[in-house]
Amino acid sequence: MRQISVFVLVFSLMYSLAHSLFAQPKVERAMIEQGLVDVQKIDPTIKVELKYSTTDNFVGKDVYGDLTRAYMQPMAARKLADASKYLQTHHPELRLLVYDAARPRSAQWNLWNALPNLSERERRKYVADPRQGSIHNYGCAVDLTVATKDGEPLDMGTKYDYFGELAYPSRENELLRAGKLTQKQLDNRQILRTAMRQGGFSSIEYEWWHFNALSRAKAKMAFRIVD
Rank of each mutant, 00 (worst) to 15 (best):
Y160M: 11
V146R: 01
D155W: 01
L166G: 00
G157V: 09
C140D: 10
L144G: 01
T145H: 06
Y168I: 06
D143E: 15
V146C: 06
H136R: 02
P169A: 06
P153M: 10
N137E: 08
M156I: 07
A141E: 08
P169V: 08
G151P: 13
P153N: 14
D143K: 04
N137T: 15
V142H: 03
H136A: 09
P153D: 13
G157Y: 00
L154A: 14
L144V: 10
G164P: 07
A147L: 10
K159A: 13
Y162I: 01
K159V: 04
I135W: 01
A141L: 05
D143Y: 01
E152R: 13
L166I: 10
Y162L: 06
L166R: 14
V142D: 00
L154I: 12
T148P: 11
S134Q: 01
S134R: 00
Y168F: 15
D143A: 12
G157Q: 03
F163A: 11
G164N: 12
S134I: 08
D150A: 15
A141S: 13
L166Y: 06
K149I: 11
A141Y: 00
G164D: 05
T148K: 13
V142R: 03
L144W: 04
G151R: 09
I135V: 14
Y138K: 07
T158F: 03
S134H: 03
D143W: 01
A167C: 13
C140T: 15
Y162C: 00
G151N: 14
Y138A: 07
F163S: 09
G157H: 02
G139N: 06
P153H: 10
T158W: 03
T158N: 11
Y162N: 03
G139P: 04
E165D: 12
V146L: 05
T145C: 13
S134E: 08
F163L: 14
G164H: 09
G157I: 03
K159S: 12
Y162E: 09
A167E: 14
A167K: 02
E152K: 15
D150P: 02
E165G: 01
T145R: 04
A167G: 06
G157F: 03
K149M: 08
T145I: 07
L166T: 05
G151F: 10
T158H: 07
N137F: 09
G157K: 01
A167W: 01
F163I: 10
Y160Q: 04
Y160H: 15
K159D: 07
L154E: 11
Y168H: 15
A147N: 08
E165W: 00
Y162T: 12
A147Q: 07
N137G: 12
M156N: 10
G139Q: 02
F163R: 05
P153R: 09
P153V: 04
T148D: 09
Y168E: 13
L166V: 05
Y168R: 13
A167D: 15
P153W: 06
I135H: 02
P153Y: 13
Y160K: 00
G139K: 00
F163D: 07
D155V: 01
N137H: 06
